[in-house]
Amino acid sequence: MDWLLEPFDVSFIQRALIGGFAVALLCAMVGTWVVLRGMAFLGDAMSHGMLPGIAVALLLGGNPVVGAAVSAAAMAFGVSAMSRHRRLTHDTSIGLLFVGMLAAGVIIISRSRSFAVDLTGILFGDILAVKFSDIWLLCGILAATALVAAIFHRPFTALAFDARKAATLGMRPDLAATVLLLLVTAAMAGSFQVVGTLLVFGLLIAPPAAALPWAKSIPAVMGVAAVLGCVSVMVGILLSWHARTAAGATIAATAVALFFISSAIKAAWPLLRQRRCSPAVPTSADTKPAPTT
C-alpha cells in the first residue's frame, strides 16, 4: 500500500489534492447545468476566451484571475450580442469569437520573453504549484456559487428543459441565463490556475456527463459528478506521480476515461440485469421423472 499513500505524504501533493477537490466540486455544480443546457461548445469557447485577459494581467503585473473573469465575461457578452444577428447562428458566433479571442491571447503572450512558458502554464496549469491562497480563493468561489445555485435552482431547472415555459411561469429565463453564464465564468476563472484553461473544461463536462445516466434528479447528478470529479483528481495525481506525467492532463484524461467507463456500463446494464433476473432453464436431468420403487 506504500505506492498508494506515498505521494500524499508530500506537502505540495496535499495542497494539489485539496485544490483539485475544490475545483471538482465547483465544476460538478456548474457543469451539471452546462451539460443539461447543451452549453458544452460555449464552455469550451469561454475557456479559450479567458486567454487575452490572463495575458494582459500577466504582462501588466495584475491578478490573472481578475483578467480571466473580465475576458470570459466579455466573451459571453459578445456571443450573446452576435447571436441576435439574424444571419449568424449561435454556433457561428461562438466559433468566430472562439478563434478571435484565442488568437488575441497568443499574440499578447508572444510579447513576453518567456512566451512558451507562459502559454503552457496558462493553457495547462500547474496543479502541483497550488498555494493556500489559491485554495482559499477557490473555496470562496465555491461557497458563492453554491449560494447562487441554490437561489436560482428553480429558474435554472425551468430554463434547462423549456425556456418558453420558464417565461410563462415568470421564472425570467433571460436573467437565469445571464446568471448561469456568470457562474460558468467564475468557475473557469477560479479553476484555470489549478488545471489550466484547456483542462478545466474536462472537469466541467466529463463528470456531469458520466453521472447523468445514473442519477434521477439534478442534485443527484451534481453529487455523483462531485464524487467522480474527486476520484479523477485523486487517481490522476496518483498516476502522474508514478508515471511522471503532467498532473493536470492526467486528471482530465482520468475524468474522460470515467465517462467512457460509465457509458459502457450503462450500455451493458440491461443485459446484465436480464441475465441476473432470468430464471434458470431446466436441464434434461431436471425434467427426467423420478424412478418408481
Rank of each mutant, 00 (worst) to 15 (best):
L96K: 03
A103L: 02
A290M: 10
G229S: 06
G43I: 08
D286C: 05
A163W: 10
I237Q: 11
A187C: 06
L169T: 04
A255C: 14
I127C: 05
T292L: 14
V221R: 06
P52A: 03
V200E: 09
V117K: 05
A74S: 10
M1A: 09
V256D: 01
L271T: 15
D9A: 12
A16H: 11
F132T: 12
L36N: 10
I94C: 00
Q14S: 07
A146W: 02
T287R: 08
F156K: 06
G67P: 07
D2Q: 12
A268W: 14
I109G: 08
F115C: 09
L239V: 15
P291M: 14
V117M: 14
F192V: 04
P64Q: 04
G121R: 01
R84T: 00
I107V: 15
A104Q: 08
F260Q: 06
D126E: 04
F21A: 00
I94A: 00
G49A: 11
V99W: 00
L199H: 11
I13R: 08
A144C: 01
H48Y: 03
M75E: 06
T293R: 13
T245K: 06
T292V: 14
L228P: 08
A209M: 14
L204P: 08
G78H: 03
G190H: 04
R244F: 07
V256W: 12
S263E: 08
I108P: 09
S262Q: 11
A247V: 12
G125Y: 03
L175G: 06
